[in-house]
Design a protein around this nucleic acid. Structure first.
Length: 256
DNA sequence: ATGGCCTGCAACGCAGGA
């Protein structure tokens, strides 16, 4: 089965991209972030006609996450238990034995800002939530837009980015804390091209010049990582007209 | 280089993103 994550930066604008890319790449599950659509406007009927089951939690203008699946999902959560403040940033569900947690981690805006503190607090609550799930499930995938480039090799120009939001040591430590629960950064289970990124700024021809960051991740528990056969970033839709600024990441995991 | 680009909201510019 193929498990994908994609920050679409508005599902309204990117619905055709999601449908087109899915038909081509063949994911069984797609975790979407930044849907930017309230639940009563979610395009459930169009997705249903395209063969998707969906779970989603959204709000107007900001945030919003969804899980699309070829087979029905069992709802687990649509918020962090201790962090249900109205920002729609998490949806979790079970697909058979696999527990899937789709996250849109706060951006943080600027090191030291209130939003940066919020990001670190949110990540701490996420780690507690995932730790609980991992006690109950051997197979766990935590995937989405983490808004953290874990290492310098995930940054096009580490010197220019040093210490700034998305790469600062406390953010990287928070990412490491998650991984240390017993999760693998799926992408790094395999040999990858150098300068592999999942996000490129809309400005300055950043995509054309491959000036990007790798901030979208698929973390897998040991039992799932053992069956993972590939993880890749699909740059193609980033080059389509009117693209999201993120590319999808897709993992292939053999069924138990 | 101060910003550049894109989206949504409600408005005819702004906040927020990364």
């Amino acid at each position: 089965m193929k498990l994908a994550t994609w920050n679409v930066n508005s599902l309204r604008v990117r619905l055709e991209h999601v449908l087109g890319w899915s038909a081509e790449a063949g994911p069984d599950v797609v975790a979407l972030q930044e849907t930017k659509i309230p639940d009563d406007a979610f395009p459930l009927e169009t997705l249903r006609e395209a063969g998707w089951h969906a779970l989603y939690t959204g709000q107007p203008a900001y945030n919003g996450v969804a899980l699309l699946s070829r087979q029905p999902l069992e709802f687990v959560a649509d918020a962090l238990p201790d962090f249900n403040d109205g920002q729609r940033r998490l949806i979790a569900a079970r697909r058979g034995d696999l527990c899937i947690v789709n996250v849109y981690v706060p951006n943080g805006q600027k090191v030291g800002a209130d939003k940066y503190q919020y990001k670190l607090a949110w990540l701490e609550a996420l780690a507690a939530f995932v730790a609980g799930l991992m006690k109950e499930h051997a197979e766990v995938a935590v995937l989405g837009d983490f808004n953290i480039a874990p290492e310098d090799r995930d940054v096009h120009d580490p010197a220019a980015w040093e210490g700034s939001v998305l790469v600062s040591p406390p953010e990287r430590e928070a990412f490491r804390t998650l991984v240390d629960l017993g999760l693998a950064d799926g992408f790094r289970l395999f040999e990858q091209p150098e300068q592999s990124f999942s996000w490129w700024d809309y400005r300055q021809g950043a995509f054309r010049r491959n000036r990007g960051l790798r901030i979208d991740h698929i973390l897998l528990s040991a039992a799932s990582a053992r069956r993972c056969r590939s993880v890749r970033i699909d740059r193609e839709p980033r080059g389509w007209p009117r693209p999201s600024d993120h590319a999808p990441v897709i993992a292939e995991i053999t069924e138990p």
